[in-house]
Amino acid sequence: MKAGFISLLAAVALGGCGDPQPTSPPAKPQVAPAATNVPARSYPTRGVVRELPGGDKAVIRHEEIPGYMPKMTMELTVRHTNELAGLNVGDEITFTLFADADTHWIESLRRVKAASALVPEPPSSHQAALTPKLRELQPGDLMLDAELLTETGRTVKFTDFRGRALAFTFIFTRCPLPDFCPRMGNRFREARELLLNRPNAPTNWQFLSISFDPDYDLPPVLANYARNYRGTNPDRWLYAAASTNALAQIASPLDLKYAREGSSISHNLRTVVLDSTGRIHRQFDGNTWKAVELADALAQAAGVTMPKLPTP
C-alpha cells in the first residue's frame, strides 16, 4: 500500500514535472525518416478513429494504402502522443504511416471531419443495430461465394468447386496452438487418407484450408506450410488465403470469429462441408470432431453413399 502510495506520488511528480515529449524507443528515428539512414517508407493515408485505448495507440479504420495494406481496421502506434489530444472516436483523420522492416508508427494526425458529422455510430446495445447483415447459414442453405488467393497464386471461388463435395476450414500458418490450426491440418490429413483408402468411396471431393492472415500467408508461405500436413501429395487438398474483405463477407454467416492480436489471430474453429451443389451439408464447430465424421460427411455430400435405386 505504502509502496503504492509512494509510486503514485512519484508518478504524479513525474507527470507534473517530466518532459512533455512522448517517449519512444531510442532506436527509431525521431525526425522524418527521409532525413535519416533508416529506410522506413512513408504512406500518407486517411481513416476513421475507431477506438482510443490510451497510451500511444489508436485503433483506426484506414483506407487502402496502395502497395502496402488493404483497407482495414488496425491498432496503430502514434509517434507523438500529443497529436492524439482533442481527437475523438469517429473523427475522420489524415495521417502518415511509416513502416520499416520490423516496426511501424504514424505521425502528422490531422482531423478533417469531426465525429458526429461523419460516422453515424449506431447507439450501442440496441438490437436493431446488431441484427447481422447476413443471417447465419443452416444446413441446406447455399454457401455465399467469395474469392480466395491460392497457394499457387491463382484466384479461386467457392463456386468453382461445384460438382464436388467441399470441406473447408480456417487457419493461419503462424498459429502456435497445437489444438487449433495444427489439429485442423491433422484431421484433414486423416480424413483425406480415409477417403483415398475407402473402397468404393466417391472421388468428387475436395479439401480447402483457408488462411485468415492474407498479408503474411502469401502463396509461397502457404505452399510451404501445406507440406507439413499434405506431405508430397497435394491430391484434392488446396491451401488459400481469404482477403479481409472476403472474410468480412463470410464470417457472420458461418459464425466464424477472428480478431488480430499483434502478429497472432484470436479465432474460433469452423469447418464446413458443402455438398456438390454448393449447399451447406454439415458444420463442425470447434476441435472435438473426428476425422471419420468429416470423411463420412464428405462422402455423403458427394452423393455417392446414398442408397442406390434398385435397377428396374
Binding site: R50, T73, P122, S124, S125, A129, L130, P132, L247, A248, A251, S252, L256, K257, Y258, A259, S266, H267, N268
Partner: peptide, 21 residues
Amino acid sequence: IEASFLSRDPALVDQPSAGFR
C-alpha cells in the same frame, strides 16, 4: 449478456468476443 452486463459494438460482432465491450 447484453441486457444484463455489457454493451456491444456492432462493428466487432465477428470477433471472438462477439463485439462485447
